[in-house]
Design a protein around this nucleic acid. Sequence first.
DNA 1: TAAAATCGATTACAGTTGTAAACTCTAAAT
DNA 2: ATTTAGAGTTTACAACTGTAATCGATTTTA
Lengths: 153, 153
Amino acid sequence: MPNEEKPEITDSEWEVMRVVWTLKEVTSKEISKVLEEKKEWKPATTKTFIGRLVKKGMLHTEKTGNRFIYTAAVTEEESLKTLKAGLFTHICSRAVGKTIADLIGEATLSHEDIVLLEEVLQNKKQEAVDEIACNCVPGQCTCKKDHGMNCQH
Amino acid sequence: MPNEEKPEITDSEWEVMRVVWTLKEVTSKEISKVLEEKKEWKPATTKTFIGRLVKKGMLHTEKTGNRFIYTAAVTEEESLKTLKAGLFTHICSRAVGKTIADLIGEATLSHEDIVLLEEVLQNKKQEAVDEIACNCVPGQCTCKKDHGMNCQH
DNA sequence: TAAAATCGATTACAGTTGTAAACTCTAAAT
DNA sequence: ATTTAGAGTTTACAACTGTAATCGATTTTA
């Protein structure tokens, strides 16, 4: 496959995509209905976001008569990946572990989740490293204090 | 303490805050210097963001002569909390565990991180629940299919 | 003390986002 | 066949963002 450019999705557009990901093949009316309930959007508002998503190439359309059937052009996983990546653009690579730990601490998890997490952690152990390199520029990183290492070479 | 309203920080403002969090007490020139390197921002650009942050109450200022010393009015932890919360506004509460698992899978972690994560997980085990309630509206949730449960009561 | 260098504040301006009405066209109803 | 209702498209518009030049005041320098 060719090198895809990453799709940026706004919060509002995300609401629309979730409906499409869930219902798979939808009309604008169906999307409108869901979001009129959840977000109290006027149908016109939903239409705007649908239009923008189509223009961005995030939604495929298939015309039948005078209406369209919308389907997702990107998977939820892909979009989630972008979202997750965004979390870590603002923190030091050395603080990622701690941040995930905080996430776990603050989350509501099921026993099943715990098992899954333990499993993933166990796997991760194999490829764990001794020391993670700090990716920050001087003046933006505090990790050196925590580890006694100088990140600002 | 009174009920603080949550501070919203843009990506660019975040860059400025990181410098302040790191250096604790800084002049605009020091901030400019760091970000001129990292982001290739003209000093005027950095000043704009500093100004906006001051207006938002995210930075404290102390005047000495005709210049200011800037200090953070919010902690990095608080801001990180907002950032982390943002991650989960777009997914079903039942998918949080899976998402954290993905995060772990994609992250580079140290042995130390693994130990920390294991510890946090262990603690979490106590308060794990059997079943997490789906918080989605009908038409936006696929978790029912994964678990054989109907989330759209 | 007058000039030059700074610093913070004001202004600028295009692009994005949220929110929605108006418009146009086609399909359905009378 | 003409009206009408609904779907998609265009236009609107304010707030927020990114990026920066300019302005006004002050401080340092000559």
